[in-house]
Every structure is written in C-alpha cells, then in structure tokens.
C-alpha cells in the first residue's frame, strides 16, 4: 500500500481508443485523480487500440497486429499499466492469452505483462490502497444521488466486484442508490449493438427503466463504452440522468 510520503507508484496510462477519440475528459479526470493520489504517470505515445473489436467479432488475424503493437509499446520496464475500462483491461490481461495461445513468444509476452495490468478502480483500491484518502480528499460541494452499473467484463473477466462501489460509498457528497439488475448487461457488446440492434435495444430499454426507477441524477460505470451506450439511450428517451465514468465522479468530488 502506498501513501503520499512513499516513493510514487509508477504507472503507464493506456487511455483506450474510445476515451482518446470520444471521451478525452474521462482520460483527463483519470490523470488528475491518479496524480492527486500520488501516482507518477506516463502516456506511451505509440498506443492505439487493444484490438478487442476485431477479436470479439472473430477477426483474430486483424486483432493480432493491434495486440502485438500493444505488447511492444508496454512490454519494457516494470511500471503498472492502468486502463480506465474493465473491458479493455480484460482484453489485455485475459484475452491476449487466448489470442496468442498458439504463438509461444507472444503468449509469453502477454503472460508476463498481465500481472501489471489494472483497471482504474482496481488500481485505486488494490494498488494505491487509496479508499481512505479518496474519502478524505473528497469535499462535498453538493449532494448527488448516483446509481452504479456493473460492467460485464469488469465483474466477470477481472472479478472486480467491490472496488468501484467501495469508492462511491467513500464519497461524502454521493448517495449510492442501487438499481435493479445492476449486474445485468446493458446490451452494448460492441458490434452486437449494431448487428443485433433490436435485441441490444431491448436490453438497453430495461437498463434505462431501472436507472430511472432509482431517481438518481447520475449513472456511474467504469467503462466509457457502456456509458456511451447507456448515455445514448438516456438521451434518446429524454431521461435527465448524467452518465459519468467513475474517474469523473472522483475527480469532481476531490476537485
């Protein structure tokens, strides 16, 4: 466990393509929060996308060059790798070993790199041990009622079921109200949301209904892709609930 007086925890940020391209403010929030908690960050410029869209669609030969690029970019050194997405972190930590199961050199690289990879909420709670410090740093400028959507890969691939809720509960200005079926998929699933739009849309409508029922003003998740999907549904239906990444909620609370 690190405290501000120790030598800083050194980490590389993998921003993910969706945050880089669509939600830069989420990346900025993550940087501010991690620095306030004493992490020393770098941003390897060669990074792009982890390759998950191709991998999930069955195009493993298209996913491989992107995964190789990731491994080349992040393999040197022993810094932690922080990824503000449960899904992208799963790709790197879990699925690279599937993707390269029959390419020994790359499999070895993927295995060696996996223990350094942490999703944002895991990193804050498990590596920085910063739940208390988050609570202390958080001022309560106003009350916010938040509900939490448990992203699928975060829960079921990384097994990170408690960290984000722990942090939200630590914030004095945030009241956490659980929605019904918070652990059920919002229906995003990458290309699934486009190819099977009606099924995905039906799943999303349930999610929106359960969010609305909580009376929360904010829906929080650890994945910008789920939030893009849920937020898009809320907006389409004119429901006035803000979709925010956990990093943004912490950033605002500690701001």
């Amino acid at each position: 466990m690190a405290s501000p007086s120790d030598s800083p925890v050194r980490a590389s940020l993998f921003a993910t393509c969706i945050i880089d391209q669509l939600y830069p403010e989420v990346g900025e929030s993550a940087v501010r929060v991690l620095r306030r908690l004493g992490a020393e960050l770098d941003f390897p410029e060669a990074q792009t996308c982890c390759g998950q869209p191709a991998f999930n669609s069955g195009f493993w030969s298209e996913a491989k060059p992107l995964a190789r690029r990731f491994l080349e970019t992040f393999s040197g050194g022993n810094r932690y790798i922080v990824i503000p997405s449960g899904s992208c972190a799963s790709m790197v930590r879990v699925f690279y070993q599937e993707l390269f199961h029959d390419e020994l050199a790359l499999l070895g690289k993927a295995q060696a790199l996996a223990p350094r990879v942490y999703e944002f909420s895991e990193f804050v709670v498990d590596v920085l041990g910063a739940t208390e410090r988050v609570a202390q740093a958080a001022k309560a400028p106003g009350r916010s009622k938040a509900t939490y959507h448990e992203a699928c890969h975060l829960r079921r691939e990384l097994g990170a079921k408690t960290q984000a809720r722990k942090l939200l509960k630590a914030l004095p200005g945030v009241e956490l109200v659980e929605m019904e079926q918070s652990e059920v998929c919002c229906g995003f699933g990458g290309t699934f949301a486009v190819k099977y739009a009606d099924i995905s849309g039906a799943m999303l409508q349930d999610k929106v209904k359960y969010i609305k029922a909580t009376g929360a003003d904010t829906v929080v998740a650890c994945d910008s892709s789920c939030l893009m999907h849920i937020g898009g549904g809320l907006d389409k239906q004119g429901v006035n609930v803000r979709p925010l990444h956990l990093a943004q909620v912490l950033d605002q609370a500690m701001g």
């Binding site: 880089d20 939600y23 949301a193 486009v194 009606d198 995905s200 937020g231 549904g233 389409k236």
Partner: peptide, 16 residues
C-alpha cells in the same frame, strides 16, 4: 441500428 435506440456522441475537437 444504433440510432434507433440511442444517440451517439459527436467527435470532440481534441483527442485525449
């Protein structure tokens, strides 16, 4: 198919 059930965010001016 996407916009039948959701809206989509516009690309921001600057990337992360």
């Amino acid at each position: 198919g996407w916009t039948r059930y959701r809206t989509f965010p516009a690309l921001p001016k600057h990337s992360f």
